[in-house]
Computed example of a mutant assay.
Amino acid sequence: MAEPRWVGVFRVEGIRRDHNGACELRIGDSLGVDGLAYFPPGVQVPPVGEGSKQYTPFDGPWYRYEFVADYID
């Protein structure tokens, strides 16, 4: 995605899709979160402390995510 675009009420700065059907929409800090993620039924949500993002339930299969500030890859 070259330029940010509006998807509904969200200004999306980037989209990432996984092979398992999961999808992340990077929305910046416009709502106090870094993005929204969709995990289809049967796809495991990464547990807290695993990876650079922390996922919080939002609505059904949708989750909010925030980047973990002290994560070192």
Score class of each variant (00 low, 15 high):
Val9Thr: 13
Val9Met: 13
Phe10Glu: 09
Phe10Cys: 00
Phe10Asn: 09
Arg11Phe: 06
Arg11Tyr: 10
Arg11Val: 01
Val12Phe: 00
Val12Pro: 04
Val12Met: 04
Glu13Asp: 15
Glu13Gly: 14
Glu13Ile: 00
Glu13Tyr: 13
Gly14Gln: 10
Gly14Trp: 04
Gly14Glu: 11
Gly14His: 07
Gly14Ile: 03
Ile15Cys: 01
Ile15Arg: 03
Arg16Glu: 07
Arg16Tyr: 07
Arg16Ser: 08
Arg16Pro: 00
Arg16Ala: 06
Arg17Trp: 07
Arg17Tyr: 04
Arg17Pro: 02
Arg17Leu: 15
Arg17Cys: 10
Arg17Val: 05
Arg17Asp: 14
Asp18Arg: 11
Asp18Gln: 06
Asp18Lys: 03
His19Thr: 10
Asn20Met: 04
Asn20Phe: 05
Asn20Val: 02
Asn20Arg: 08
Gly21Ser: 07
Gly21Ile: 00
Gly21Thr: 04
Gly21Ala: 04
Ala22Gly: 04
Ala22Met: 05
Cys23Phe: 00
Cys23Ser: 10
Cys23Val: 11
Glu24Val: 06
Glu24Ile: 02
Glu24Trp: 15
Glu24Phe: 04
Leu25Ala: 05
Arg26Val: 06
Arg26His: 15
Arg26Asn: 14
Arg26Gln: 15
Ile27Thr: 10
Ile27Glu: 09
Ile27Leu: 10
Ile27Pro: 07
Ile27Asn: 04
Ile27Ser: 03
Gly28Trp: 09
Gly28Thr: 02
Gly28Lys: 13
Gly28Leu: 04
Gly28Pro: 11
Asp29His: 14
Asp29Ser: 10
Asp29Gln: 12
Ser30Leu: 01
Ser30Thr: 01
Ser30Phe: 02
Ser30Gln: 13
Gly32Phe: 10
Val33Met: 05
Val33His: 11
Val33Arg: 03
Val33Glu: 05
Val33Ile: 09
Val33Leu: 05
Val33Ser: 02
Asp34Phe: 03
Asp34Lys: 08
Asp34Met: 02
Gly35His: 11
Gly35Ser: 15
Gly35Thr: 05
Leu36Arg: 12
Leu36Ile: 15
Ala37Ser: 15
Ala37Phe: 11
Tyr38Gly: 03
Tyr38Asn: 02
Phe39Gln: 12
Phe39Gly: 12
Phe39Glu: 06
Pro40Ser: 08
Pro40His: 04
Pro40Leu: 06
Pro41Gly: 05
Pro41Ala: 11
Pro41Ser: 11
Gly42Thr: 08
Gly42Phe: 12
Gly42His: 07
Val43Gln: 13
Val43Leu: 09
Val43Gly: 12
Val43Thr: 11
Gln44Asp: 14
Gln44Gly: 00
Gln44Cys: 13
Gln44Pro: 07
Val45Trp: 01
Val45Glu: 00
Val45Phe: 00
Val45Ala: 00
Val45Asp: 00
Val45Asn: 03
Pro46Ala: 01
Pro46Ser: 01
Pro47His: 09
Val48Met: 02
Val48Leu: 12
Val48Asn: 05
Val48Pro: 06
Val48Asp: 10
Gly49Ala: 11
Gly49Val: 04
Gly49Gln: 12
Gly49Asp: 09
Gly49Pro: 14
Gly49Tyr: 00
Gly49Arg: 07
Gly49Asn: 12
Glu50Ile: 12
Glu50Gly: 00
Glu50Ser: 13
Glu50Asp: 15
Glu50Val: 15
Gly51Asp: 07
Gly51Leu: 08
Ser52Arg: 08
Ser52Asn: 13
Ser52Gln: 12
Ser52Cys: 15
Ser52Glu: 13
Ser52Gly: 14
Lys53Ala: 15
Lys53Val: 04
Lys53Phe: 12
Lys53Trp: 10
